[in-house]
């Protein structure tokens, strides 16, 4: 590992538990690089996660780290941010953790526009439990609990976040890492709720069941299917089918929740 990044890791905890070719390490690396680029104060950064493969990431990262219960990272993170708005909060979560069991917390954190950067390690599968379909598993894909093909429709997490009120929404991939780092930086700099959906690869559980057992095959799929927001805007619904649209979807300046609460305090204390 590059020397200047070592301080951000708990090096004695590495190597990580993730399988060979798992994209989680790539996203974790991108997060750390973005933090380094922004020179955030390490002791004022809190990284919160739920349960699952992705949620093990904070354990390797040398910050204030909180590995909570399944789906609840945003609830804990909301408490931390409310109590101490000076802290920079990241939530690292998986597609199942965030959009299934944690779906309620997700839409409400977005609605409040609380200053939390949520990075979803979206590998379309429950990895830790061995490959069950999640709300992000594409229709017709196979999973241990969808042995005949998945009949559920999958969420578009970016659309969901935006309609729930998130004020920065973007999607990156583990193939396009330089762009991913830039998007994470943008998300971290954004004041308000930022959502970054990162299309990730799970060769072990998603890949193996869906004729892409090598990480290379999975990466190639991302490369082939990715289109930029700009190109996508000129494509028909049909042409977009199965495509991964990457880039920034939404950015707006809306009063941030803890700042609004600071005004409540002022009002309650007799100010205007």
């Amino acid at each position: 590992m590059r020397k200047e990044l070592q301080k951000y890791f708990r090096n004695d905890k590495l190597p990580h538990i993730w399988c060979p070719g798992c994209g989680h390490g790539i996203i974790t690396g991108a997060v750390v690089r973005a933090i380094d680029n922004l020179k955030l104060n390490q002791s004022k950064v809190c990284i919160v996660s739920g349960i699952g493969c992705s949620s093990r990431a904070p354990g390797y990262m040398n910050f204030n780290t909180l590995h909570t219960t399944h789906g609840r990272a945003l609830a804990f993170a909301t408490g931390i941010k409310m109590a101490n708005p000076d802290l920079k909060i990241l939530v690292l979560t998986g597609d199942g953790d965030c959009s299934a069991i944690g779906g309620n917390h997700f839409i409400h954190a977005a609605r409040r526009n609380i200053d939390i950067t949520t990075i979803v390690f979206n590998n379309s599968i429950y990895g830790m439990t061995g490959g069950q379909y999640s709300p992000m598993t594409p229709k017709a894909a196979f999973a241990t609990t969808a042995p005949y093909g998945n009949i559920d429709r999958n969420f578009d997490l970016c659309k969901l976040a935006q309609s729930a009120g998130a004020t920065y929404v973007a999607r990156g991939t583990v193939f396009h890492v330089p762009q991913l780092i830039k998007l994470i930086e943008k998300a971290l700099k954004h004041k308000g709720f930022s959502l970054l959906d990162v299309v990730d690869i799970c060769p072990t559980y998603f890949g193996r069941r869906n004729k892409m057992s090598s990480p290379i095959a999975m990466m190639n799929k991302i490369r082939e299917m990715s289109v930029t927001v700009r190109s996508a805007s000129k494509m028909s619904e049909e042409e977009l089918s199965g495509k991964i649209v990457i880039g920034e979807f939404h950015e707006e300046r809306v009063p941030e929740y803890t700042e609004e609460y600071a005004k409540v305090i002022e009002k309650a204390q007799g100010g205007n």
């Binding site: 909180l66 909301t78 408490g79 917390h105």
Partner: peptide, 30 residues
Amino acid sequence: PKLGGKFIQMEDEIASMGAIIGASLTGFKS
């Protein structure tokens, strides 16, 4: 808020419990 403290109505009971744990970790009695 009169005392500079914080109140939040969460989206559900699970979230309320999570939030007080988070707040307590920053030193707040919750």
